[in-house]
Amino acid sequence: MKLYNLLTALIIVLAYTSCDSDDQSETEAVGTLQLKFDHFVGTQKMELSEPGSIEFQYETADGEAFNISKFGYYVSEIILEGPTGEYYEDEQLVSALEVKGFYHVLQDEPSSRFITLSDVPAGRYNRVTFKIGVSESAVQEGAAGGVLDPAEGAWFWNWNAGYIGFAIEGTAQNSGQELVEGDGWTIPEKSFALHIGGWKDIEVAEGENQKFVNNVKTIALQFDSDLRVESALDPNVHIVVDLLKMLDGANINFANSYSIHAPKAGQPLAEVLPEVFIVDHTHQ
């Protein structure tokens, strides 16, 4: 009799727990939210030129004519926030087999300019923050796959191991670059390559100069209106990246700044990154 009672109790408990978990999954409604990145140079849509081309579509505020042959950046650590405490953090995973939460946005890969966040808890959102670049926590995970695999096109510095967070390459009328021909590669005359990297965030010791530069920057953007996330909706945020703001903001003069391949030289460009990304509009 005792055993029978015990079994009955067990069955009731089991049934109850399974019902409970069913209920939970129903209340946790989720939806998607898409970030769309569009690249501009001032008022013109960015178009890529062949490397070394001397046709210049664009001009800086100082009147320096240039074109772009390569453009892109890493987006990571995306967070959405809402006016009444809604919060979503895009999952970050760095391993050899799988990488999640890191996006390599490239001008010449249109699909990379759309980042779809899924399983966002239903609610209202009015703010997105993300990082441009790959920060220490990810670098220190060691060799990684996916968009962080250097053999698959990841932008990586071997000698000062870490990722290039933002890169611009092209040709400029005033560039001081001379033609360099190597074994199977060339650097065209008047070309430029501005690579922004550097992730070491080490506090300055007393009596010492700042040695390392952390060029991984956080971008925080407010939406023009609240966005509702629900399973039946398809909201998106249209973010405009204006390269001219970067070049003008950092007062780039191609005669001198045509080859940036180390953290310190990239710092002035990284400092203006927060002004380069703006929310153009949102779609509900």
Binding site: P150, F156, W159, A161
Partner: peptide
């Protein structure tokens, strides 16, 4: 210049 052992061989391979 390298802070993780995994990244060490890349330098020898690509140098």
């Amino acid at each position: 210049g390298v802070t993780h052992l995994d990244f060490v061989p890349i330098n020898a391979i690509e140098s």
